[in-house]
Design a protein around this nucleic acid. Structure first.
Length: 522
RNA sequence: GUGCCCAUAGCUCAAUUGGUUAGAGCGCCGGUCUGUGGAACCGGAGGUUACGGGUUCAAUUCCCGUUGGGCACCCCA
């Protein structure tokens, strides 16, 4: 035997039992989507790499299956949202709003495989284009929760956040729109690693940039900019940097934040120029310190909704900011109650979700208790992305939100809760006995199939005993025997393997699926 | 991207601490049994010991690399 060709790392073969189980699961999800007016859409598995770079986080960009093919930059889709919005921009802009789309299919992310994570997995989800406000957000969140509930996953936890809080602050600081992304990213860093993590990250950036410029005349000057000279982020300043250093510092920060500089109609040089002008204004140091202090408080706001809402309102009041996001969250919570949801809900204003296209309400759904001992798996994620359509070329702003869930993870959660994954088997096994030709057997099998049965035909010409044994082991409940006697009489023998009862039926009057005189009903 | 564990027949595991031709159970296929299945008995197929190097008279066994699998971190569905 030749050496075996191995499966590509992170990819999975899905065997019939699992495959059938998933199919049922997906059908049920799609039925729920359809019940709310979401119609199925398919988009290509491959897209222009740029589609996913325009507004994705650094993390996402790094884990993309992207390659050059005949001078084109191609990527396997890492998600559906950008593709659906691209399709909408291309052909859907004339249609009545809102547009509701549902999708399901494989996506690809180059991550390290482990339990609940492979490099190809199946996302099912919806996008709601052209509707803003809590009612739209609540509909999408409801769909996520109801989908899981309908499948029997009732012990989920909803984690709900809102990027508008940090957005309100940033707007008040009159910083460039593009700096916003860097702060959102900082929020994630702060939340994940605390101040230390953020400082370390900044030092990494600065020292990496030192190595970068080490070949020019500026290298000696840069040697003075040791990482240790930036002990505190609040002291971030461009003072004492040469023009070139300042320029590359800003570039590094932006790139670190995953900001795509090529996606605008301004050149990277122009963008950096504008940023430098703003950063050099005397207020800027103060603004950044201000913003980071705000962020530190913000990421502390997570937990039980009523408490967190009050605390958030207080924070906004302290900074003289509008409490619009809090009112939205309140309304969303009210509407979720109207939908009849009673899942555990945690508000988390520090939620950032890596993807940089979110703009408002955003959420995740996890199994089990968050913070409890049980391993918590994220099943769904989504939120509001009001800017994406225009970033992808829509001629008007299109408010939008959506969510996606991981089919494999849901299946695993169901199995962990005792769901049965049954081996799919045919209803009938058709075999001969004695001297009966294959043509006659085929005729019988085809008659049974036309009657609605899933019938498997004996192709090995085995002994009857061997065939009975095979059907038994394959999980086929009934064996139809067509031998010389039956050929002469124009009937079949219908043998129920479980009860060992045999009945005879004329070929002209075969049993129907779901009729009460057979024991092999579906 | 970082760290840890693992790899012998389809499956579960052996192989006397480096020593003949790598074995067993289960499973699969066939026969005993040319029209009746969960049994028994008999036989058969199936391995470049994941792959590639190295050490050695000799490697499944020791070392390195690669690939694949598992787990945690990071991040996410």
């Amino acid at each position: 035997m030749k050496s075996v060709i191995e499966r590509i790392r992170g990819m999975a073969d899905v065997w019939p039992a699992e495959r059938t189980f998933r199919e049922g699961l997906i059908t049920q999800l799609q039925r729920g989507f359809a019940a709310h007016g979401y119609r199925p859409i398919d988009t290509p598995v491959v897209e222009s790499t740029e589609l996913f770079l325009r507004k994705s986080g650094e993390e996402r960009a790094a884990q993309m299956y992207a390659f050059d093919y005949r001078n084109r930059q191609i990527a396997l889709r890492p998600e559906f949202t950008a593709s659906v919005v691209r399709a909408f921009v291309a052909e859907g802009q004339g249609r009545p709003l809102p547009q509701r789309y549902a999708y399901c299919g494989p996506v690809f992310r180059y991550e390290k495989p482990q339990s609940g994570r492979s490099r190809q997995f199946t996302e099912a989800g919806v996008e709601l284009l052209g509707a803003r406000g809590p009612a739209a957000d609540a509909e999408v969140i409801h769909l996520a929760l109801a989908s899981l509930e309908g499948l029997g996953l009732t012990d989920c936890t909803l984690r709900l956040g809102h990027l508008g809080v940090v957005g309100a602050l940033l707007a008040s600081l009159s910083l460039d729109d593009r700096v916003r992304d860097w702060f959102l990213w900082s929020m994630e860093q702060l939340r994940a690693r605390g101040d230390d993590g953020l400082h370390r990250n900044l030092r990494d950036l600065l020292s990496a940039q030192q190595g970068f410029g080490a070949n020019g005349a500026a290298a000696t000057a840069e040697a003075g900019v040791a990482a240790a000279d930036f002990p505190d982020l609040d002291g971030l300043s461009l003072d004492g940097l040469t023009e070139g250093q300042a320029r590359s510092t800003v570039l590094s920060l932006l790139r670190g934040a995953g900001v795509e500089l090529g996606g605008s109609n301004r050149s990277p040089e122009e963008i950096v120029e504008r940023l430098l002008v703003k950063l050099r204004r005397p207020r800027v140091d103060f603004d950044i310190a201000h913003a980071l202090a705000f962020l530190r408080r913000l990421i502390g706001l997570h937990g039980e909704p009523t408490t967190v809402l009050a605390d958030t309102r207080a924070l906004l009041a302290d900074y003289g900011l509008d409490d619009g996001p809090v009112r939205e969250l309140e309304e969303v919570l009210t509407l979720l109650q109207a939908y009849g949801h009673h899942q555990r809900i945690i508000l988390d204003l520090g939620l950032g979700r890596g993807l940089h296209y979110y703009t408002g309400v955003l959420f995740e759904v996890h199994t089990g208790e968050v913070g409890g001992r049980e391993a918590v798996i994220q099943l769904c994620g989504g939120g509001r992305y009001d800017d994406l359509a225009q970033i992808l070329g829509a001629r008007a702003p299109i408010p939008a939100c959506g969510f996606a869930c991981g089919v494999e993870r849901i299946a695993a959660a169901l199995v962990a809760r005792g769901a049965l994954v049954a081996e799919p088997a045919a209803d009938l096994f058709v075999c001969g006995a004695g001297q009966v030709g294959m043509a006659d057997l085929i005729a019988v099998a085809e008659r049974l199939r036309r009657a609605g049965w899933r019938a498997e035909l004996d192709l090995r010409g085995r002994r009857l005993a061997a065939n009975l044994s095979y059907a038994e082991r394959a999980g086929i409940p009934v064996v139809v025997i067509f031998g010389e006697t039956e050929l002469a009489a124009g009937e079949i023998v219908w043998r129920d393997l479980a009860t060992r009862v045999e009945r005879r039926y004329p070929l002209d009057d075969l049993p129907q699926p779901n009729s009460s005189d057979t024991s092999a009903e579906r």
